[in-house]
Simulated scan of single mutants.
Amino acid sequence: MESPPDETEGSTALAEPANPHRNAFIMMGIGGATIAAFGLAAIAGIFAPFFLGVVLTICVHPLRVWLERHGVPRGIATGAVIVTVIGLLLALGYAMVVAFGQFGALLAEFSDQIAAFGQDVAAWLSSIGVASGEVDTIFASFDPASLLSFLGGLIGGLTGWLSLLVIIFTMLLLMGMDAGFVPTLLKQLYPARPLIVASLVTYGANVRRYMVATTVLGLAQGIVDWIALLIIGVPGAFIWGLLAFVCSFIPNIGYFIALVPPIIFAALVGGWPMVIVVIVVYAIINGVIQSVIQPRVIGKAVNLSQTITFFSVLFWAVVIGPIGAILAIPLTLLVRLILVDSNPQMSWIRPLLGELDETRAVMAQFDAEAKAERKARKAAKAGGVPSGNPPASAM
């Protein structure tokens, strides 16, 4: 007579409490997230500079703490922080204006070569049967002067940039003054909401470590790329070094964005040999900084998987524009703060988001056990002992 089935089978699946409204809650969450995304896209013009001001205020907060710790009055410390941030923004803005001017001169100088390069690409595509008549028409009508007119329109729209800077500077001024009360407010809030306070403090520390480390390493990367391109002889080396610095804030795809322009101009002046040199130099410089140095410096500040990081860049770029790609990591960490870090019931999802320390330990244990098992089978086979259980003797 067969024994009844073990009632403990499937107990793992029955361990969670039944929730008849689970699917409805999931759909409501997806719907709410969609509405929030469209809402942010609608106010991207003010949300993007506002959040940039928040991130900058978080980054310079240690300077305020250091000044106040050394006896500097709170008002002077606030003014010093605001002046520091505005000075950095003005320096970056000046560098971008210089780069725009050089880019316009570069396009004017190489307009004929760029047009010829476009024709060569069109001819090559046609020779392999990829290009269609429409593509040929596009390349045939390509005129580098259109890029100059685009650049002129971009610089001509300086009023929009000025309004954006006014919003950023105003937010820095106001948040810089309000930031002086934040430590005391957190101490007051901690007895009632300790998890929220801890999550806010951790968020600020992680964003600050990520942004400061990325800025310093991106600046080093841009300078090294600039010098390397000068040595190689690629036109517009300063422009491409500045582009490498800006793209260092865009995870995963920033490297490829920064690589395309110097490859094109290297092909115009030096052909394939110079292109290969540029690719190798960029791969070495960016590989060492972004793959070796940056993870060690940032550490666990960004516990996000590579897939989520890549998707966050695309998502925030679509929602709030190009600045969303630069602020993708701080924005994603903010969403995580709201939905996961401040909610103790969501701690189970942390490994799925990228906190893999425990997962790596479990995988290492599995690998060690599998390796030991393979060694045992190999030793048993070498000794002439069959692996597995011996066959049962006949009755």
Rank of each mutant, 00 (worst) to 15 (best):
I155C: 07
V81R: 10
L88W: 08
R208Y: 10
M28W: 11
L147P: 04
I30Y: 14
G287S: 06
A317E: 03
L186F: 06
N23C: 02
S248Q: 06
M28C: 08
V216G: 04
A228L: 06
L92F: 09
P4H: 13
I320A: 01
L88Y: 06
A301Q: 06
T57S: 11
S3L: 15
R336H: 12
I138Q: 10
P273C: 05
A36N: 06
N23A: 12
S393Y: 15
S141A: 15
A99Y: 07
P344R: 08
V280D: 14
L56R: 01
I284G: 08
R69V: 01
M211D: 02
T170R: 07
L151F: 11
R377G: 03
L189H: 14
V280I: 15
K375Q: 15
A317D: 05
M274A: 08
P235E: 11
L174M: 10
G324F: 03
G383M: 12
S312Q: 01
P251A: 01
L107R: 03
G31P: 00
A123I: 01
W348E: 12
G71L: 08
R64H: 05
A105L: 14
V313W: 04
I276M: 15
P194W: 07
A382M: 13
S199E: 01
D341N: 14
I284P: 08
L173K: 00
V197K: 07
F245S: 02
K375Y: 15
I329M: 08
N389S: 15
I167Y: 01
